[in-house]
Write a protein that binds this DNA or RNA. Structure first.
Lengths: 197, 197
DNA sequence: CAGGAATCAGACAGATCGGTCTGTCTCTGC
DNA sequence: GCAGAGACAGACCGATCTGTCTGATTCCTG
């Protein structure tokens, strides 16, 4: 299938490491979780981690890149089935957001936390976070461009503000309603932009 | 003046600790900065810190409470001089935000970072963050209530989303324009709410 | 079954963590 | 000028951190 059996064994351990890391980092933070804790939870030897990733920061970056891929897939799948044209697809993004913050294993945006805990421009986790958020912005702009409005880029930026605000506030207040309020606000901005300004 | 001279000496050290801590935590994160680094930078002995605050987490909470007071003062001063009634006062909040994220020592919202790094409900830094954000929400709702619109609470929540989104994105993208975009979006939401919906 | 790659558990290193404690020095208030 | 309070530097504690290394074991392949 995807290579030899020994390679599968390797990637199974790799996967265990990534998903355990994602869970622990998500609930406790990056610096708060030590390597040993993570290894015990994943049932993986230390050398395996360092063979696969090289360092803790690289592991974090790998977690973020994997998560970015998952989110991207989930999002494009949603957009494919969304009704209502570009406008409907934009609202579908906020529907996805509402689901995400309601998930029991949502404990804030891992990308933002990574940028907070590894704030240097040269830190790999921060770079992964910037790349992902730029992708989000691009996706929103793509949809806004098809709206045929005056300033699609500005609208995309404003929608992005709502999206990030909802992520942050639903985490801090432990209340997923922030996401549905973001959707409502997005709808207001959409119609306002459509009617010209 | 404000007490005996010995008490002033004590509070001078306390202030040095608080402002140095705010600076270091802001730039590097809470867990990334060790006590020893902080003490060396502030020029304060270790025992002074532990006499004044008791623990690192309490110091963090004290930094946040002090910052909350500073922001609250700055904000109410702005609101007092804002023209344009409640609507003008709300936009003045976003003007303040635009100034804040342009400040050279803005490196993301310290409250959000605190909630990220100390996520347990019993952690004092997280509690301080929740208290502050609830105060922000209350301030916005106060202004929205005077607007005489149908659902002032909902508008306040949506404005809060924009505010937090701008804080987060201006940090992550190192681009303060997010705040001015938030102001524009806030204006759109305000007029939409005023015209009924 | 034999050969080899990968993982295992865990010791180990060196640094740093938060926090406690001691003893000296300086400054204040009477 | 003396008693006391507070800050000082720095030793010290046990725990924990990331990362390295070893030697035994497990599992796949041929």
């Amino acid at each position: 299938m995807t290579g030899s059996a020994t390679a599968n064994r390797a990637s199974a351990k790799r996967e265990a490491l990534l998903s355990t890391a994602q869970d622990l980092f998500s609930r406790q933070g990056y610096r708060a979780v030590g390597i040993d804790t993570l290894l015990a939870e994943a049932g993986v030897a230390k050398m395996t981690l360092y063979k696969q990733f090289g360092s803790k920061e690289e592991l974090i970056a790998a977690v973020l890149e994997r998560l970015a891929g998952q989110i991207s897939s989930a999002l494009t799948a949603r957009l494919a089935h969304a009704a209502g044209g570009s406008q409907g697809r934009i609202l579908a993004v906020f529907d996805w957001l509402a689901d995400r913050v309601r998930s029991p294993d949502f404990h804030g945006c891992l990308f933002m936390k990574a940028a907070s805990e590894y704030p240097e421009a040269t830190d790999r986790p921060r770079q992964a976070a910037e790349t992902f958020k730029a992708g989000c912005r691009a996706l929103l702009e793509e949809q806004c461009n098809e709206l045929g409005i005056a300033d699609p880029s500005r609208l995309a930026h404003q929608l992005h503000l709502l999206l990030e605000g909802a992520l942050v506030l639903s985490f801090l207040e432990r209340d997923p309603r922030a996401a549905t309020e973001a959707r409502e606000a997005a709808a207001v901005l959409l119609t306002a932009a459509a009617h010209g300004s």
